[in-house]
Amino acid sequence: MALIELKNVCKSYYSGSLETKAVCSANLKIKSGEFIAIMGPSGSGKSTLMNIMGFLDVPTRGRYYFENKKVTSFDEDSLAEIRNKKVGFVFQFFYLLPRMTALDNVKIPMIYADVKDKEQDKRARKALKQVGLGHRMKNRPNELSGGEQQRVAIARALTNNPKIIFADEPTGNLDSVSAKEIMKIFEKLNKEGKTIILVTHDSKTASYAKRKIRLKDGLIQ
């Protein structure tokens, strides 16, 4: 059974009457437990494809099945819920909230999942330990290095125990040592059973993935 199935998915942007196809006729099946790298030069539509699969964006055409349910008919609240419970995001620029400690940042997804306070604390601490940041929980983002911030972001992606983790250029803003550490974490998570979908233009980063999907001008090659 496929975890994700895209059937003829298109995403177009309109500026006036001018149509720009970011993704076109995408057909894709992803099984649970896969580690996939979506590759391609900038502007190839790889982020758009990830946003659609990550429920951040809706396709203009085609159908998207997640766990055999047709996502394309979901309303905004259901999409928020599915983002909250089924997927985790890791972004290039970490996107941690500057005024909160690492621990509080990790708790954000659980706030929207109505997880009880005690449980929030337990899970957030566990996730931070999992990414090797057990000693930096009370630090704010500006007191952490880039690699550490990205690890907080990964911990944040893990707390609601999602099926899939989407990572959009997770090493794009890191030095090679930190980048390697981060990719090791993804590798470990994949071994533990998480489906990982990585968006990158860097072949070194992509080499950790077991399957590569190449995009060019919105088309899967």
Partner: peptide, 8 residues
Amino acid sequence: RKALGAKP
């Protein structure tokens, strides 16, 4: 926050 699951 929306990406992390916040509803409107």
